[in-house]
Amino acid sequence: MAAAAAAGAGPEMVRGQVFDVGPRYTNLSYIGEGAYGMVCSAYDNVNKVRVAIKKISPFEHQTYCQRTLREIKILLRFRHENIIGINDIIRAPTIEQMKDVYIVQDLMETDLYKLLKTQHLSNDHICYFLYQILRGLKYIHSANVLHRDLKPSNLLLNTTCDLKICDFGLARVADPDHDHTGFLTEYVATRWYRAPEIMLNSKGYTKSIDIWSVGCILAEMLSNRPIFPGKHYLDQLNHILGILGSPSQEDLNCIINLKARNYLLSLPHKNKVPWNRLFPNADSKALDLLDKMLTFNPHKRIEVEQALAHPYLEQYYDPSDEPIAEAPFKFDMELDDLPKEKLKELIFEETARFQPGYRS
């Protein structure tokens, strides 16, 4: 834990890192770190609560700039109880001085990944967590956004079992017609939660990839272990087919990539493993919904509104309290091709509203 900075004593240090967030945020305490930044909790002297502050230093890398800009653009436009918001952003007053960006968010005690390492969940908890994931996802999908990296560590939890989806750095506007060349190379989302079509096709992607990830998360809540822990690309596919069985001819016809289709045709026939054999203690309604989410063919996979209306979630289902976005989200430009200098300018502009004396 960093010592509390005395008023006016300059930035606090946390594990050798400068955290320049005073005077409003003090009493910093280390939480963890990701690929390009550290997260601390801090005391907000204005709202009198502890908050989470993520320090991001992305400006050396085009990919990190892209992810940072995506996350900020999306989260500043989203407003939903099951999606983490941005409360404040701290950065230098000029673009030349801006080396880091500090993002202030609600402090959540833990995440689903940490929880599943230590606790076996009751059916009631599984049901409530799944409902909140789908409630947040309904809003995301209504904005025409794909999260693309749903996994237990991106689901934040607090002691009252509130759940918030975080990390929109890989999110995209849904565009089933656009052929994202190089899709697989830039697709760094965790393999275990990846839909089979991501490994088999490169053309376009749809909201059904997020539903697949939610199915993987439900299976993990039922058993405290990942359902498809593939060691590499082909191993991942083999794990999936080992449980779902061989795809039907109709399902194979959806695979545009001939090499991928021929690979699947070359494999020995596998039978589907019954879900109640894998999860003998699970609620039968939970397994019915799991089956509809972990469907090989993305066109037959359940959609988020149908999933919310499934009998497993009937005690929570309330369409009048499951809000959607006001308007579909649009990125003005494809960020993939922009140089990091341009992305830095866009991050600077996007964060201006939090600067003292800002006038829109």
Rank of each mutant, 00 (worst) to 15 (best):
T110L: 12
L290C: 01
A52F: 07
A92W: 03
N271I: 15
K203M: 04
E12T: 03
Y358I: 12
L137F: 00
I83R: 04
L170S: 04
R353S: 14
N158D: 00
E334A: 00
R277L: 11
T206K: 08
L222M: 13
C216V: 07
L121S: 04
R50Y: 13
Q132W: 01
S153Y: 07
H239A: 06
N276K: 14
D124Y: 13
L76G: 02
I227Y: 04
R148S: 08
G37C: 15
K342D: 04
K207P: 05
L218D: 02
Y30G: 01
I90F: 14
L290F: 01
K292C: 07
E303L: 00
Q236G: 08
D124W: 02
A92M: 11
I256M: 04
F168M: 10
L116K: 06
L116A: 04
K164D: 06
P93T: 15
G169T: 03
P176N: 01
G22F: 05
T63I: 13
S208E: 01
F168I: 14
F168G: 03
Y36D: 15
R194D: 06
P323M: 06
A42V: 11
P319S: 11
P319V: 07
H299T: 13
S29N: 12
L335W: 03
F78S: 10
E220W: 05
Y358Q: 12
I72S: 12
N276T: 02
G85W: 00
P58D: 01
E345L: 11
F279T: 00
N297Y: 15
I243W: 00
K114C: 08
L200S: 11
L75I: 07
E350G: 00
I347R: 09
N123P: 04
N47C: 09
E250T: 12
V39L: 12
A52R: 07
D179C: 08
F296M: 02
A5L: 05
L28D: 01
M38E: 09
E109L: 08
A143V: 13
N201W: 09
P311C: 02
L157N: 10
E60T: 12
L264C: 01
M38W: 10
K54E: 09
S153D: 02
K151F: 06
L308V: 04
I209G: 10
L218R: 02
Q132K: 14
D332M: 02
Y139L: 07
Q236L: 14
L115Y: 03
R261Y: 03
I140V: 01
C40V: 11
E71Y: 03
H80T: 00
N253T: 11
Y25R: 08
K259Q: 12
G34D: 10
D210L: 05
L308A: 02
D235F: 09
S208C: 09
M98T: 00
S213C: 15
L156W: 03
V49I: 15
L343A: 09
L75T: 01
P323R: 10
P11C: 10
Y358T: 02
A307W: 05
P93E: 05
T159I: 12
H120W: 10
S284V: 03
E220Y: 02
I140M: 08
A35F: 01
A52Q: 05
F296Q: 04
A189K: 08
V49F: 10
I95C: 07
P274E: 05
D106M: 00
Y316V: 08
A327N: 01
L69D: 05
E334M: 00
R277F: 04
G204Y: 08
Q315K: 13
L264I: 08
D291H: 11
N123I: 14
K48C: 08
D106A: 11
P311G: 06
P176A: 06
A219M: 08
Y312H: 00
C216T: 04
K54M: 13
D235A: 12
E12C: 05
P152W: 10
L241S: 06
A7E: 06
E60D: 15
S208Y: 14
A52M: 12
F183M: 08
E186Y: 05
V173M: 11
V51R: 09
K117D: 07
G242T: 04
Y131C: 00
Q315P: 06
N201M: 07
I256D: 08
G215W: 09
L156A: 06
E334T: 02
D332W: 05
L218A: 07
R277T: 12
L252K: 10
H147T: 11
V18A: 02
D167L: 01
S248K: 03
Q355N: 02
A352N: 11
P11E: 09
S41D: 12
M221P: 08
D149R: 07
T181M: 10
G245M: 06
H299W: 04
V101E: 15
K164W: 02
G357S: 12
P11W: 10
D235N: 13
I211N: 15
R225A: 07
I255D: 06
K300H: 08
P58N: 15
K285V: 12
A2G: 08
T190P: 13
V14E: 07
R353M: 10
V51C: 12
H80Q: 14
L234G: 08
D175G: 00
R24M: 09
Q236P: 03
Y187K: 03
P176W: 06
I240Q: 07
R194E: 13
L116F: 05
I165K: 11
D167G: 00
S153T: 07
L170N: 06
L265N: 01
Y312F: 15
V21D: 06
K55P: 05
N238I: 15
H310K: 03
L163R: 08
L222K: 04
S246T: 00
C166E: 06
N158P: 04
S266K: 01
P229N: 04
Q62R: 14
T181S: 15
K207Q: 11
F59D: 06
P229V: 02
P280A: 00
Q105G: 12
S248H: 02
L267Y: 01
Q17N: 04
L163A: 02
R353Q: 10
P93L: 12
F228L: 14
S202W: 06
R67Q: 12
L218Y: 08
H141V: 11
L150C: 03
P339H: 08
G16W: 05
K292Q: 03
V49L: 13
N123C: 03
A52L: 02
R172C: 06
N276E: 09
R359H: 10
G8C: 07
Q236Y: 04
F129S: 00
Q105K: 15
L115C: 01
T295P: 15
I256V: 00
D175T: 09
S122F: 06
I74C: 04
V46K: 15
S29Y: 01
R70C: 14
P11F: 01
A143F: 02
K300Q: 07
L290S: 02
D44E: 15
R172M: 09
H80W: 01
I240H: 07
D235R: 04
E322N: 03
E305S: 03
H120P: 13
H239L: 14
D337V: 14
K55S: 11
D288F: 08
K99N: 15
A307C: 01
Q62I: 13
G16S: 08
Y263T: 12
N271D: 02
E186R: 11
V21H: 06
K207L: 12
F78H: 04
R15P: 07
D88R: 03
L115E: 03
V214G: 13
L28F: 03
V188Y: 08
H239P: 10
R91G: 02
I103H: 11
Q105W: 15
L134V: 10
I84W: 03
S213F: 11
G136V: 14
K138I: 14
